[in-house]
Amino acid sequence: MSPRWWPSGCCGPRWRSVGSGRLCEGAAMRLMHLLRKEVLQMRRDPVILRMILIMPLAQTLLLSYAANMDVLHVPLLIVDQDRSPESRDLAARCTSTESVILRGYRGTVGEAEADLEAGRATLALIMPSGMARDLERGTATVQILADGSESTTAGVAAGYLSRIIAAFGIEAQTKQALRRGRQVKVGGMAAEPRVLYNPDLRTLWFMAPAVLALVLIVLMQNITSLSIARERELGTLDQLMMTPVRSWEVLLAKLVPVGVLGLVAASVVTMVVIHVIGVPFRGSAPTLMVSTVFFLFSVLGLGLLVSALSQNQQQAQLVSFFLTFPSMLLSGFIFPVWNLPALLKPFAYLVPMTHYLTIVRGTFLRGAGLGDLWVQLLGLALLSALFFITGAKLFTKKPA
């Protein structure tokens, strides 16, 4: 049986039969030369090399440790107007936690307020004269002044102090009642919180896995869009498109090196998060790998979209920033998706980073597998296909 042949002009001057799945030699040779060109171009560009080698590590370490919302070492002032053993005991207990650090004692409330206004402290504990006497009667009250300009930090730290003070009051009343020979019965119901997956509520465990998504979207999207926009700006892309190469060959040669670098960067960031930062990995490695590949396809597609909308590198940078910043705000990177206004929630689920963050945090902390995350994985796959196909369609052979 005679073999079938590709139509004339399909793959260049030299042909092979396709009867047993043989490849077109002309297309393969052109693709190899294009890939070699892209690799050489990356090697000769020190800026891209620095971005690829330094940015993933720098972003991972900096964002993981700097974006720390744990409330620690909040500066505290104490105004002890009672000067009793009870007030000194309460002051010692309030300063024994890592959440606050004692900045000193003040004689009056006015002095404490002046320090709060000057920014030298965030909290002030006011123990009025007669506190010990009122504590014996069961009517003691102390005051906590908090700097509202740092609302989150001050609110959480003030909550810590309130719990310490409440426990101190119950303990003091119990001791007094026992000394008097009376039976004590305090409270009728208590809640015992138990935090799963992140017992210490460490922000580092919450933020570090999410940096993997941020590194990929910032690094890979920028490299893809800027490399194409630069060649369009210099005119080399137009010259390349006038050669016998096809658009899909140029596209593949552009994306394969970037995709490989993206996988390498993702692997490096994952190793740093696990072995350097110390975040536990409890889930399915194949699920994380598959979701990372899908997310990388979506990022490359967005890079193609940015390059299609840009005529030069400056425009590509602006469009990339326009796409990256809303992704961070809508995806749950900083704020939970369920806290978004109802009008914005549908847009959040159109952002690939939203689904990827759920998968990353689920596999790292909760030990989730494919059976738990298949909905997010399906959404990520659909969005990745949409963005990648749209970006590839816009990447035409027409000169800019």
Rank of each mutant, 00 (worst) to 15 (best):
I48P: 06
M220N: 03
S84Q: 06
I389V: 15
T108F: 08
H275P: 02
P85S: 10
Y65Q: 08
L61Q: 04
E249C: 00
T97Y: 11
I217E: 12
T141G: 03
E136P: 04
R30I: 15
D82R: 06
V264D: 07
T224Y: 02
R246E: 12
N312A: 09
V272K: 07
L305T: 07
T139R: 13
M29K: 12
V250Q: 05
S291W: 00
A92S: 13
L216K: 01
P336K: 03
R44W: 09
L318V: 15
A114R: 15
E233D: 03
M241W: 10
F297M: 12
L394A: 14
V184M: 09
V18G: 08
G362P: 03
E171I: 08
M189D: 12
A191L: 14
P128G: 07
S298G: 06
F387D: 05
C24F: 05
G159L: 06
E38T: 09
I52N: 12
F388C: 11
L237R: 11
L63T: 03
F333M: 11
H73L: 03
T174I: 12
E192D: 14
A172R: 14
M207E: 00
A348D: 04
V256H: 06
Q313N: 01
M32A: 13
M242S: 14
L161G: 01
Q311S: 13
W5K: 07
L343F: 15
T153N: 00
I101N: 09
T396S: 14
L135F: 08
Q376H: 15
R179Q: 13
Q315D: 10
V215T: 12
L196T: 00
L135D: 02
T97S: 13
D134K: 01
A112D: 02
M289E: 00
T224Q: 12
L329D: 01
G362W: 07
A191C: 10
L304P: 08
K345A: 06
P257M: 09
M271A: 15
V156K: 06
G262H: 06
R120F: 11
S298M: 00
S310H: 10
M55Y: 13
L329I: 11
T287N: 02
N339V: 15
T60C: 13
M271E: 11
W6V: 14
C11I: 00
G119R: 13
V211R: 02
F294W: 09
R93V: 10
A166L: 10
L304H: 11
V250P: 08
S84I: 03
L302V: 11
T95Y: 07
S225I: 08
M207D: 01
E171A: 14
P341Y: 04
E231R: 02
A58E: 02
E117K: 14
